[in-house]
Amino acid sequence: MDLYAVAGFLAAVLPLVATPGASLTLLIQRVTTSGRREGLPVALGTATGLYVHATLAALGLSALVMSSGQAFTAVRLAGAAYLLTLGISTWRTASPRATARRALGRAPRARSSAYTQALLGNVLNPKAASIYLTLAPQFINPHRSPIRQILLLATAHTALVSLWLLIWTLLLGRATRAAASPRFKAVLSRITATVLVALALRTAVT
């Protein structure tokens, strides 16, 4: 696989990366409530999810799921249910009092880590799987190992997504320091929760 193919793939996925989704929404919620240190596990969880999709596509398992109407529906609804649960949980912990407790370090630990949330949010997203089933094959050389090429594209994709999330982490970190009141963070968490629920509904019906 040459660099032109990798560059073409990145150009094709760039609009998808720049479109707000579950990973960016989770990043906003985590960074604004717990600080910039939460950006790294979100990026790592998202990257792991992309590698999972790439590996399954290379092994042909994702194609089997996408071709089966019932299996695809099950994955889609599982993803929608997870996003909905995450949105409701975010809303419930978005009160100014809870936000203030987190700022003082007295809040209970989250039930799942930022890494796990980002990983599940990506793995349970059938649209992420479709990238490696419909888009990636267009940039693969049929005379070379498809598995190695898909994993190379996944590595480039992961680097692009990680850079995008890192930029947002830095911007959000500065914005959070500028508006660090518990009430502001609570309002932002509720907006995030609403977006997560909206994403869940969109995933369920599309």
Rank of each mutant, 00 (worst) to 15 (best):
L16V: 15
T192R: 06
A156V: 00
L151D: 12
G60Y: 13
S189I: 03
I167S: 14
R190G: 01
P142R: 03
T134L: 14
A47M: 13
Y115P: 08
A12E: 00
T206D: 10
T46K: 13
P142D: 07
D2P: 01
V123F: 04
A204P: 01
A94K: 01
R202W: 07
A180F: 13
Y132L: 09
T206S: 12
R183C: 09
T25N: 13
T116M: 05
L27M: 02
S89W: 11
L44T: 09
I150Y: 11
R30M: 09
L199R: 09
A175Y: 14
A80S: 09
L44V: 07
T48N: 06
I147C: 14
A94L: 01
T192Q: 02
T90W: 02
S181E: 12
L77N: 07
A80E: 02
L165N: 01
R101M: 07
L133M: 02
T85H: 12
T46N: 03
I140L: 04
T203N: 09
F72P: 02
A100G: 06
S181I: 04
T158H: 05
S62L: 12
T33K: 05
T93A: 10
Q149W: 01
I140W: 07
R144G: 00
T32R: 14
R148Y: 15
A57Y: 05
